[in-house]
Amino acid sequence: MSEAPAFPPLMQGHAVDAGIDPFEKACAMAALGCDAGTIVYSVGVNRLAGALVMAPEVPLEEAMAMLPTCGVGFQNALGALAPPEVAVHLEWAGGLRVNGASCGRMRAMAGSDDPKEMPGWLVVGFELPLVLLSAVPGDDPDQTALYEEGCADVDPTQLLESWARHTLVWINRWEDEGSRPLHAEWRGLAHAMGEEVEINGQTGTFLGVDENFGMLLRSGETTDLVPLSSVLESQS
Rank of each mutant, 00 (worst) to 15 (best):
E3C: 11
A6G: 14
Q12E: 13
H14P: 09
H14I: 05
A15C: 05
V16A: 12
D21N: 09
A26M: 07
M29W: 09
A30E: 00
L32N: 13
G37D: 02
G37V: 05
I39C: 12
G44R: 00
A49E: 06
G50C: 01
G50E: 02
V58Q: 06
V58P: 02
L60N: 11
A65C: 09
V72D: 08
N76Q: 15
G79A: 07
P83Q: 04
E85R: 09
E85I: 11
A87C: 05
A93Q: 04
G94N: 05
A101I: 00
R105C: 14
R107Q: 13
R107D: 02
A110T: 02
S112V: 08
D114R: 05
P115F: 06
M118N: 04
M118R: 09
P119I: 03
P119G: 08
L130W: 03
L133R: 02
S134M: 01
S134G: 06
V136A: 07
D139F: 03
P141W: 13
Q143S: 12
E149Y: 11
E149R: 06
G150Y: 15
A152G: 03
D153K: 09
T157S: 11
L159K: 01
W163I: 11
A164P: 10
A164S: 14
R165H: 11
V169P: 12
W170Q: 04
W170V: 08
N172A: 14
W174Y: 11
E175P: 08
D176R: 02
R180H: 09
R180G: 13
R180S: 13
G188V: 03
G188N: 11
L189N: 07
H191A: 09
E196W: 14
E196G: 05
G201M: 03
G201E: 02
G201N: 01
G204A: 07
F206R: 00
E211M: 11
E211L: 12
M215D: 05
L216P: 07
L216T: 06
L217T: 06
R218H: 13
G220L: 00
T223L: 13
T223I: 06
L225W: 14
V226Q: 12
S230W: 09
S234G: 07
S234N: 03
S234L: 12
